[in-house]
Design a protein around this nucleic acid. Sequence first.
DNA 1: TCACCCGAACTGTGATCACAGATCACTAGC
DNA 2: GCTAGTGATCTGTGATCACAGTTCGGGTGA
Lengths: 237, 237
Amino acid sequence: MNSALALAELPLLERRTLSDTVYEALSDLLASGRLAPGDRLSLRQSAAALGVSVMPVREAVSRLAADGVLEVAPNRVIRVPVMGAAAFRALVETRIAVEGVAVARAAERRTTGELAAIRSAEAAFRAEAEAAEPDRARAVQLNRDLHFAIYGACGLGPLQEIIARLWLKAGPVINLDLRAHPERLLQGFALRRHAEAVTAIEARDGAAAAAAIAADIREAAEFILTRGGLRDVERED
Amino acid sequence: MNSALALAELPLLERRTLSDTVYEALSDLLASGRLAPGDRLSLRQSAAALGVSVMPVREAVSRLAADGVLEVAPNRVIRVPVMGAAAFRALVETRIAVEGVAVARAAERRTTGELAAIRSAEAAFRAEAEAAEPDRARAVQLNRDLHFAIYGACGLGPLQEIIARLWLKAGPVINLDLRAHPERLLQGFALRRHAEAVTAIEARDGAAAAAAIAADIREAAEFILTRGGLRDVERED
DNA sequence: TCACCCGAACTGTGATCACAGATCACTAGC
DNA sequence: GCTAGTGATCTGTGATCACAGTTCGGGTGA
């Protein structure tokens, strides 16, 4: 009774179910490209590997499948979808459109605190990318951190969630490629675009910021497409 | 062997699991506003009502929860999220941004066939809205059909999925309001905006089409917000 | 030697059971 | 009379079992 005021300040702790944990574990595998397009996934094997029963894995997989990050074939086989060039292009265009509006809003509404966070995220990525021996996994994570530091300043929660899902969907193909061909990092395209974006955000220039991020996304996509890693399959036989 | 060519044209039939069926049933309930914000949902009761075990319901609910269409409280109670005014505003702004780019693209890329489909969808909605005794449920469905006829012409599958999820999220609050206050239909705001959108799409004027849809969305939202149906709650006690 | 077929060992899906925690009505105690 | 406590009954979560369909390998047939 007397401690009502103190209790009112308690942060409501989020409940973690096993399903959530499994979901994050699988998401991590997908986002980092350790699960490549076409890879199959067995409920029982995954469950055994994680030391849980199949139930939590089922729920996690069904969520991932609902997002299109995993797919369950008519044969009831679970696997990472193999994306044809056309599907990949559509995904990239969607990312450019959605992330574009997020960046534009972020540029116009960012607080000085958010700007500082973006700057330090950019610096961190730059430091890793320019290192003598860049750690690819770490570079990928820092790149993601930078992007989401920007999107976080757009002030629209639902939009951030949408973008997170798009990244999850694009993660396997992009990061698989990056694993196979790390030279993309070295060319410095991303560094240039990021710098442009940060400058535009500083200047509260939404259009310029959106253009920079769009170029960042598109150049990475073109790099992958021109290498021909994605052949346009109609069906997997 | 010899029929390989013919077989190649077979449409791969989608497998329907019980979970999918349950998911659609629940989605329908939510989209039509029959499940209102704050309503609780019991796995066992839902399962009994649908004549299945709890398993399929669990999976469907976990998918819905992943999309934020349902939420499971720390008490482990499943319910339709009660959206504060701030959250609703963020959702509306997100819809305007995302659906705006979809409409703009649709206006610029629509084929004549898609235009015809959009026109007939608009006519169908108009007919229902201007009827002597409009069927609200039908009007809601036709409004949805029209919007998605437009978005379908944007040529970006992932974008359409995103919008579908946003509609699912906004469905309960919007349609609940429409059930309580059907006069919104009668004021004809939507009719005017739809007409503007169709005209702009005919003219391949992306910006004008986006503006019309944005106004459509915003006016409906303002109508709900000004009525004060959403009080801004920080926590549910 | 190659094609076919049959069976063992998987696959996901659904049902059922077990359990911890939350609710709520009710009663005992102040 | 009203509060605090208590137990039956609900909740979702996780594990286990049962089943049908698929996959894949080994053996048998021509």
